[in-house]
């Protein structure tokens, strides 16, 4: 079972995660055998510099982006990474004084894990871009549902094309096979529903403008197709927001 949600995040963080696991095992052995850890001031300073850089770049992104999710979710990730880095600094100071210090080893492991987790949180905030596109299509769909003419359909069509492309790229990025299949299946349903929706809108608009019989039925049919499509897009959004850690809750 993959630990990280996307291949990009996995490629960045999985090697570090493995090393931390290794360190945890050694730490457990160390508690028994009392092995020493030398001065880690220099590598900790390198982590500190990298953290400062990430926080700086991240804060610039938060200031310039219009993505509200990013604005909301990035700052807690910065705090997590910065607090974890402080633990590493403390660990290095403690180890300098006592290379056998058990609390220092705990700080070292907690700090490394926190850096990993905070960086993962930060990278996950980017995953919301696809959700925004889906929400935009939902908005267009809602607008079209209220309209009594066909012209707003063209903006929906271009939004759908963008969404389809993003979902295609996204499913290739996911590490969970089930999530990939769910995205593919829902996107295929949306694609199949599109011509049905065009037809339903056309029939409704034509019937209504000619004051012909069957307006109510055409409207019902159109509403049914809208609802079906909307439900499928909601399902896509739900799957896009699933992460590894949600899986138990979702199951």
């Amino acid at each position: 079972m993959p630990v990280f949600h996307t291949k990009t995040i996995e490629s960045i963080l999985e090697p570090v995660a493995q090393q931390i696991s290794h360190l945890v095992i050694m730490h457990e052995e160390g508690e028994v055998d009392g092995k020493a850890i030398p001065d880690l001031t220099v590598p900790v300073a390198a982590v500190q510099a990298a953290v400062s850089n990430l926080v700086r770049v991240g804060k610039e992104t938060v200031q310039t982006t219009e993505d509200q999710v990013m604005k909301r979710d990035m700052p807690p990730a910065f705090i997590k990474v910065e607090n974890s880095c402080s633990k590493l600094v403390q660990a290095a100071q403690m180890l300098k004084a006592d290379p056998y210090s058990v609390p220092a080893r705990d700080y070292l492991i907690d700090g490394s894990r926190g850096i990993l987790s905070g960086t993962s949180d930060l990278l996950l905030t980017f995953d919301e871009a696809e959700v925004q596109t889906c929400l935009c299509v939902q908005g267009q769909l809602h607008f079209l549902e209220q309209a009594n003419e066909f012209s707003p359909f063209f903006s929906l069509s271009s939004g759908m094309t963008k969404m389809s492309k993003m979902i295609e790229e996204r499913q290739q990025e996911l590490t969970h096979q089930e999530h990939r299949q769910m995205l593919i299946s829902s996107m295929n349903t949306v694609k199949e529903l599109l011509p049905v929706l065009i037809s339903a809108i056309k029939i409704f608009v034509t019937t209504k403008s000619s004051h012909g019989a069957g307006v109510e039925e055409a409207e019902r049919n159109r509403r049914f197709t809208f609802e079906k499509m909307s439900a499928e897009i909601n399902e896509i959004i739900r799957v896009l927001q699933l992460t590894t850690w949600d899986e138990d809750a979702w199951a």
């Binding site: 050694m26 880690l40 990430l54 490394s112 930060l122």
Partner: peptide, 29 residues
């Protein structure tokens, strides 16, 4: 892109740190 690069740097620095701690311990076994 900048954030991805910064995240890669953090991963590399953390990796180097953990390696130093682990390797030092291994030497002393």
């Amino acid at each position: 892109e900048q954030i991805l690069e910064a995240a890669k740097s953090i991963a590399a620095a953390t990796s180097a740190l953990v390696k130093s701690a682990s390797a030092a311990q291994r030497e002393l076994v």
